[in-house]
Amino acid sequence: MEKPFGEASRDRPPASRRAIAEREKAAPAQPEGSPAGDSPAERVQEGPAAAPIGPAPVDRLRESSPVIPGDAPPPSTRETVTKPLLASEALMEDLAPMRPAQDAARVWCAAVGVGFLLLGGLSIAGLRPDGVVAGPPAFVLGIVALFTALTSVSYRQRAIAMVVLGAIATVIGLQSAGTAVGWGTARAVAAIALPAALVFRSRYRAYTGARWLLVAAFLVALPSFGHAIVQLALHDPHLGQLGALIVILAVLSSLTGFMGAETTGAGSFLAVAVVLAFTVDLVVGRLALLGAFSPRDIVSVLSAGLAFAATSAITSLGLFQILAWRLAADARRIDLHSHRPDHDKDGRDRRPPSGGEWLT
């Protein structure tokens, strides 16, 4: 009786054993006197190059595989999956950065350095009020600013260098101004403190201390703001009142910094606007005092305005970075998962209306 195909193939020896048996039959008999193990069949079995012909058994493949053991489970895919980035971790650098405007500081230092070199050239050419005397200090400040921009220093060291450089340039500018040094000092301090506080409020909008810094900056800018109001209200209409009006509008627009933590209050844009407003006030005020508009006088006034804007900008940016270096760690202690109540103190619903309520 014939066996089924499955049973017949199961009783059949593997292909490798059949091949070895056929080789033993075909091999010549072992000569007398030869040691054991010299027969061709035994050499085929013992030699390292004797590879089985045909498919090897599964157990032998598992034993010879160095990667996956025979009884080991397949590797889990969970080990290769990286930890997901949480929303709180992604927002932390946006709400409280550790080194904000690090690359922008180098660009500003380079730009201010080139500007001071140009002012030194104008002084040598006799187009500035102090003439040749104002040339060497401008060249020194320009070289120091370029050195600060090109060298590799720490975040804190560059910020301190920017503040010191701006303070020295402000003192030199006030000495060359002559009269009205007091109001010039108030204008310079306001143009430095208020933009720095606005930028800090913009970058650290969830930090409560940013608003207190903005309050302090408003108090510092109060003398210059009051002087602009007095100039606009008590004097007769003249060209200088245009600059006072621009200063008043810029300072009042900075009150948007006291908005909620959901918005930046446009702090970065308002900081630039405040610097430009005080610069326009300086330029327009000096132009109003000129009797005749000669090219030399116009270049002198415009160069003074350029120096004031560059000095205020670099000093304000350095002050902002010092505040960021000092308060960034404290600003990161914020609760990103704080629950906001759905109802206010009066019991009114604070949740936004749904789409159906809005349509009705």
Rank of each mutant, 00 (worst) to 15 (best):
5 F>N: 09
7 E>Y: 11
13 P>N: 05
19 A>Q: 09
19 A>T: 10
20 I>C: 02
21 A>L: 14
23 R>G: 09
29 A>Q: 15
31 P>G: 06
32 E>H: 08
37 G>M: 09
46 E>H: 07
47 G>E: 15
48 P>C: 06
49 A>P: 03
54 G>N: 08
58 V>N: 04
66 P>M: 05
69 P>L: 10
72 A>M: 07
81 V>L: 14
82 T>V: 14
84 P>G: 10
87 A>G: 13
88 S>M: 05
89 E>M: 14
89 E>N: 13
90 A>G: 11
92 M>Y: 00
104 A>R: 10
105 A>S: 12
115 G>N: 02
117 L>V: 13
121 G>Y: 01
123 S>Y: 02
143 I>K: 01
149 A>M: 04
151 T>E: 12
156 R>Q: 10
157 Q>S: 07
160 I>M: 07
162 M>G: 02
165 L>E: 01
176 S>A: 15
177 A>L: 11
181 V>I: 11
187 R>V: 00
192 I>T: 10
198 L>D: 01
200 F>L: 15
200 F>Y: 08
204 Y>N: 00
204 Y>T: 07
205 R>I: 14
206 A>N: 11
210 A>M: 07
212 W>M: 13
218 F>L: 14
220 V>Y: 01
226 G>S: 09
244 A>F: 05
247 V>Q: 08
249 L>K: 03
251 V>D: 02
254 S>M: 08
264 T>I: 03
269 F>K: 07
275 V>K: 00
279 T>I: 06
285 G>V: 02
290 L>C: 11
295 P>R: 03
317 L>M: 14
318 G>N: 02
324 A>E: 05
325 W>P: 00
326 R>Y: 06
328 A>R: 04
333 R>W: 06
335 D>Y: 05
337 H>R: 12
344 D>W: 14
354 S>R: 10
356 G>H: 07
